[in-house]
Design a protein around this nucleic acid. Sequence first.
RNA 1: GGGCCUGUAGUCUAGUGGUUAGGACACCUCGCUCACAUCGAGGAGGUCGGCGGUUCGAUUCCGCCCAGGCCCACCA
Length: 793
Amino acid sequence: MEFPKRPNFKELEERINDLWAREKIYKFQPNSKKPVYSIDTPPPTISGKLHIGHAFSYSQAEFIARYKRMRGYNVFYPFGYDNNGLPTERLTEEMHNVKAKDMPRSEFVKLCLETSRKVEQEYERVFKRMGVSCDWSEVYRTIEPRVQRISQASFLKLYKKGRVYRKLAPTIWCPKCETAIAQVELKDKELKSTFNYILFELEDGNKIEIATTRPELLASCCAIFVHPEDKRYKHLVGKKAKVPLFDFYVPIIADRRADPNKGTGIVMFCTFGDLTDVDWFYAYNFEPKISIARDGTMNELAGKYKGLSVKEAREAIINDLKERGLLVKQVPIKHTVNVHERCDTEIEFLLTKQWFIKYLDLKKEFIKAGRKIKWWPEHMRVRYENWVNGLQWDWCISRQRYFGVPFPVWYCKKCGKEILADYEQLPVDPLRDKPNKKCECGSTEFEPEKDVMDTWATSALTPLINAGWDKGIKHKRFKMLYPMSLRPNAHDIITFWDFNTIVMGLFHTGKPPFKNIMISGHGLDRHGRKMSKSRGNVVLPLDMMEKYSADALRWWAASVKLGEDLNFREEDLQAGIRHATKLWNTARFASMHIKEKPKKPRKLNIVDKWLLAELSQVIEKCTQAFEHYEYSKAKMYAEQFFWNVFCDYYLEMIKYRLYSSKEKDSALWTLYTALLTQLKLFAPFIPFVTEELYQLLFRKYEKDKSIHISAWPKAEKSWQDEKALKLGRIAMECIAALRKWKKLKNISLAEEVERVTLLHPSPKSVEGIKNEIEKTMRVKQLIVEKGSEVVAK
RNA sequence: GGGCCUGUAGUCUAGUGGUUAGGACACCUCGCUCACAUCGAGGAGGUCGGCGGUUCGAUUCCGCCCAGGCCCACCA
């Protein structure tokens, strides 16, 4: 086959991608006898465009997949899309300029599905272009019927185990948009506000001073807190105080969450002013008093202030307090509040019924499960444990949204009882479907549950989804794939995705859902900031691959240690191009000499022995690195060997043998073997160019139809040769010294010199390799003597 | 405020209780030598964040501090 002088990366990457698809190189083999390596691919959120950060972390997991495949594993590497939930809703609203609450729900859901199908196709194009070696016939979507069935079945099972319950809980609510919102939709905003110092009367007539920014919530006051060690107020604990204007009594309680240094050190607890109030509500089981309605106006509980907006009520109440002499002072402050990121409205908390998964009693089990899993890098497990130890609430899994997995639940209109769907009915949409049976009370009238499940309640099931949990945990496929060998994801979702998945895995199988967790960092912009649309710093992987190549992008992604963030600078992509080009030229050089498969010679030249000894060390180091998910080290070892040993020295040293016939066989065989080995070491990182070179140069002599299913190199015992290693390294030193000397004397490297004396620490050992040094450096006679590094003519 | 991580030439980074701290980009000089000018050869550039401690010896181990990142908490 003709060997092109220059690579056309774009053309060859397209062609190689076709080859892989045609030959189904990455297809999982359910009937193979090879050991299985299963990967629980993170399903990217359908929220817009993929940026460099995605390319970065998906590449890193992908290196491992390719390595394991070459190690002889039957790699199960599915792909998924997380298109359930809020991000997809928002994208849909943006793209179609609609608002979910202004249109029929079914129509909105249809639009979301359409949107996500389109975006999925774009995503797939990008990942395929990157050479992500997933089995594209194993694709799931978190909104698809099969996954909905699994997610709902998970809910039913947990319900039957008593792990799921429903109770009143505060919900984040935007009074302007009149909708429940999720925590991710919040942003911080610094606002000016006023601390109002208000007098509360004790039963004995004494008065205490309380500072609050939200006097309009007086009607919602449930209790008053002081810090247990606050000497000023210890005597108050257990007493009662009268709420001004509304004249009802609330208890005074000691609690550590009351900060003695804030305001007066006495705080009123209302349902709900902020998140601390929510905390207290859970901790003390108070009867809530809600005085703000869904539209952000005051309700009946607020008495004469009913109908006023929160702001109007605040003013009115302050005025009334002033009139009665109950307002001591007002102090302006700046504080940060949570606002809805879309409309900048300060959020409120409403009390609604929510579904929870009960798991606080299992913290110890979660820690234990986390320790059964190998974390790479190891220290990432600490973050997991911190999270588990700090858990305070059960997991609220209901969301007042539209696009997501519905709860398989109805409520009896007559007696209010919860009716659950049968397994056979799943997936079910209670808004559309009816229960299979009557209520126990005989009624056939049902109210559907309108909420959808938290997206994490579904994505936490990906190992089960991938392993085919719906077919049963005794099924062959499930046993083959579960627990997953690897869960790869970035460090920001350890506490969400990894934690929740471990929870679900334990609930449903009693086992941790994976054996290894590989935590990658973030690909950031030049200045170390996350890429986002609003910042306008998004770099698209497709653009970069068009301009450079997929291999170049991957090479960049491999350049940082596992778990570390990496700033993206476009000029760094040159390194990948450079490396691929060098590899190309090396292969082209080899192709000029290799005309048939070289036979292993009976006796190897000392230089070839040295090269193989170096090579076997590199193989050993790369393999070790990969076994510890340290792809960046593997890349570095292979790269440094290739560039600084193989190209800079070895190739130069064997040239004269290749162009003559003296010991040519030994050089040819070593060249062939070393080059093929190095292509394999690089294959996980730059799969396209290594495949192209394999096809061009080696395919006709090797059995495997793709380098990516060929065997990972083995560090041959017979190659290890301490003596040759030492000799070769001295030779490198000698050559470097000669190069320096020629440069110093202004002699061209190509020019032959008569006689050089090289003073070297161990001249004897050089004898065996002298010939190579002479030819490489074009020296007629090389004399090596004991001494320092000086070179003379 | 808590936890974890990071801090090495202008930039990105490797690495180690012990000679001159390794590589890449950028920079300077020379060179189209038969794989490669998308290259090669050579060169300049570092108080290994700061301060203490352990040690014969610390960039490496320990403590404190400073700076940056991430997650969590706080934001009455």
